[in-house]
Simulated assay, not measured.
Amino acid sequence: MTVAAPSDTEHGATGRGVVGLSRVSVRLPKGSERVDRILERAGSSLLERRMFAKFHGLRDSPTLAPGEPMEELLVGAARDALGERGADVILYGHTQSVQDFACGPGFAQRLRSSLDLPDVRFYGVSQINCVSVLRALEMARRYHSRPAAQPGERVLVLGGDHGSVADAARIVPRVTVAGDAAVAVVVHSSDENDFPRYRYLSGGALRDGRFHRSLRMTTKELTLFSQSCVGHLATALREATDGAGIGFSDIDWIMPDLSSALFWRNFCRETGVQQERICLDLLPERGHNNGVDALSALQHADMTGRLRPGDRIALVALGPGAYFQVVIVEVTPESS
C-alpha cells in the first residue's frame, strides 16, 4: 500500500495569491437509459438488477443519443467554464484509457481550436481510473505552486468518458453502471480581478497495489477490495483534513463518488460521518459517471443554494486499482 506525500502548500496559498476552483460546468447528453435495462441487456439476473436498484440506488444513466458526439459535451463544458477568458494549460482526466472519439488523430488539436486556444499545452491524465479528474485538480494546484508561477494563471481541468461505448466497459460487476457526462472547471490563483469560488485547502491520496488487476480481479479479490474501500477512503480523507488543520467534524459536505448508495451507508456507519452531509441527490437520476461525480455534485449543491460561504467541502473519488483521492475546498463569499 502506498500513500501520497502531504500537499506542498498550506490552505491553498502559494505566495502569489490564493489558489482554488471556479466555474464548474457539467454537460449531460441528450439521452438516458434505465440501469435495469442496461443490466438486462448484459445478461444480469432479475435478482442482481433488483439489488442495483434497491441497495445501490441506481435508476437512470446518462447516455449519448444516436449520433451525439462525446467530444461535443467536452467542448461545451470547457467553453462554459472558461467564459470570456483563456487558459495556460489544459488537463483532461479520463477513466477509459482509450476513448472512441480520440482514437483518430487530432482530438487535442480540435479541442484547442474549438476553444480558440491553438497553442495551449494539453495533457491527458489517465491510468488511475475514476480518480483521474480530482488528480488533475491536484496537478493544476501544483502547477500554481511552481517557482515560475504568475498571478492570474489559469488551468482548465476537463473530465469525462464515453461510458456507454460498450456495456462490458460500463458495468462494474456488483458495484455500479457508468454513464456519459463531461465536466470542466478552472483552477486559478487570485488576482485583483478574479478570486476562486472554492478555495483549495488540502488533498489526500492513497493506492493499494494489492488490487492492481482492477476489473480483472477474481471474486475473492473483488470481495476484499470492497471490504477495504471504506478504510482506505477514511485514511485519504484523514490525510486531507490533517493537511487542512481540521477534523472530520469540520467537513460540512462530502461530494461523493456516485457509484453506490450502499457504499456510503457503510462509510457513515463505520466512520460516524452523518449521512446528511453526503450529497447523494443526483444518484438516482445520474448515477456514476466515472471521474465527473464529485464536481457534478458540487455544481448541483451550489446551484440549488445548499452551500454557504465558509462551508468546507470534501470532493471524493475512488476506483478499481485501488485508487482514492480527496480534495478539500472552502466556499468563498464571492462567486466568479
Rank of each mutant, 00 (worst) to 15 (best):
V187W: 00
D194W: 04
G243W: 07
T235W: 03
G159Q: 11
F195H: 05
E192P: 01
R269M: 02
L237D: 04
V157W: 10
F225S: 03
D180H: 10
H232A: 06
V175K: 01
G272M: 11
V230E: 03
P284W: 14
V230Y: 11
G247T: 15
R210F: 12
L283W: 15
L156T: 11
D208W: 06
F263D: 10
W253P: 04
H232Y: 11
F267G: 07
P256Y: 07
E285A: 14
A261D: 08
R154H: 09
V157Q: 12
A236R: 04
V165G: 03
C229Q: 08
F225E: 07
I278A: 12
R238H: 10
S249P: 01
P173T: 09
F225I: 03
S190G: 11
I246M: 04
D161I: 06
R210S: 12
C279L: 05
G209S: 15
V273H: 05
E285S: 15
D242N: 13
R197T: 14
G231N: 07
F211W: 00
D250P: 01
F211M: 04
R238M: 07
L262W: 14
T241N: 05
H212K: 05
G247N: 12
I251E: 01
T176H: 00
A244M: 07
L222Q: 14
G287Q: 11
Q274H: 09
G245N: 02
A261M: 03
L215M: 09
H212T: 06
A166R: 14
T271G: 09
T241C: 09
H288V: 12
S189N: 12
L258N: 01
V172F: 05
G272E: 08
F267N: 03
R207A: 07
E270P: 02
S190F: 13
P284Y: 14
H288S: 08
V230H: 01
W253G: 06
D257E: 11
C229M: 13
H212A: 13
D208F: 08
E276F: 03
G203D: 10
I171Q: 02
P256K: 10
I251A: 04
D257S: 08
R216Q: 13
R197V: 02
H232V: 00
R216V: 14
T218M: 07
A184L: 04
V157R: 04
H288I: 09
